[in-house]
Nucleic acid binder design. Sequence first.
DNA 1: GCGCAATTTTGCAGCGAGTGCAAGAATTGT
DNA 2: ACAATTCTTGCACTCGCTGCAAAATTGCGC
Lengths: 197, 197
Amino acid sequence: MSDEDCGLRERKKRETRLALHRAALDLVEESGFDAVTTDQIAARAGVSSRTLFNYFPNKESAVLGATPADPDEMRALLDARPASEPILRSLRAIVETRLSPTTYDPQLRAQRRRVILSESSLGPALVGNNIRVENILTELVAERLGLDPAESVRPRVTVASALAAVRACIEHQHTGGRGTVEETVDEAFALLEHGFA
Amino acid sequence: MSDEDCGLRERKKRETRLALHRAALDLVEESGFDAVTTDQIAARAGVSSRTLFNYFPNKESAVLGATPADPDEMRALLDARPASEPILRSLRAIVETRLSPTTYDPQLRAQRRRVILSESSLGPALVGNNIRVENILTELVAERLGLDPAESVRPRVTVASALAAVRACIEHQHTGGRGTVEETVDEAFALLEHGFA
DNA sequence: GCGCAATTTTGCAGCGAGTGCAAGAATTGT
DNA sequence: ACAATTCTTGCACTCGCTGCAAAATTGCGC
């Protein structure tokens, strides 16, 4: 996926996109999300402010380097999981992939992770409140469970809870909570799986 | 609470607040959330645009008539629930109270409900993404469970999942899903209680 | 009532996010 | 090298929201 379409045009676009993402991450890490303007990000990336919005729909997405959730891509992710796996576990894997994309170079990934875990303005944009992602996943989960998403809320509630759980764990970090994200996510999904009762 | 402090000043403030809320609801019901500007809301309420933001922190809050989440108030709500009640059930009751405040006159409440269920821009502002509410509830739930919210994620995950579940049910309505909100919320909380496994 | 203090409203000036549009620059295939 | 396509840029603009200081309103002691 990263080597196909190697025209100059496509390569430049990838470079620009990455430059914007890097610039955004750097600036946010330096001064905090709210103190950084989109103009500054564009300037550091060496591109006009208008161009930033050709690549990302908003500031948050630029910082996250968010790729516009593609249904096919997510379907591929889900299909990659064994059919026998409990749906929650598959969901968790998918969400974690979105959280730290494996196509990144490790250093950038680490920085992204650092920023996500320290900037609370980003949580919502990442997993919570991301209606588009929720809708796509709901559709996919319904399919796998053999349910009609218009008939039963179950798929949607499953997805929403999973996303919320991850976001809660990130929030837990923001508020200085104990444990690594991995540990707390473990705990959270155990709760979802076996019930809060 | 609605009769105390009956000075002219306090009464006028309540009137203005209500006027803004009503204006916002009316306009949004007429034209949709995105098509309504804060200036229009203020104008219909007969106050300056600047005044709107003296009463509400943002457009969404004006439409929702959102009262700034008060820790003490929420504690009172929780304390009103029997101590033996499962925490999820208490949470559900609290969230539902926030969803349709009992201090409203029925007609306004109905309108508010209608708007909430038809305007998807509002879901986030109501329950999801409401970090402040989540933090307060997390604290309270931790207390009731006898846990330290910094030690265990459980309280936070419980709260986040409950909020997410309700938001998911509202979203279910938005997307034309079947069933009343009550039914779907029932189903959702049953899942949370007994687990998704 | 009267006048002073506290509070509220308002206008204004301004910032930052985000968009539509049209002109200009770069890249492509031929 | 030329034309078609695509990307970038600048510009003007809307909208949400904020700070500030002046003006209006209300509360209170007399």
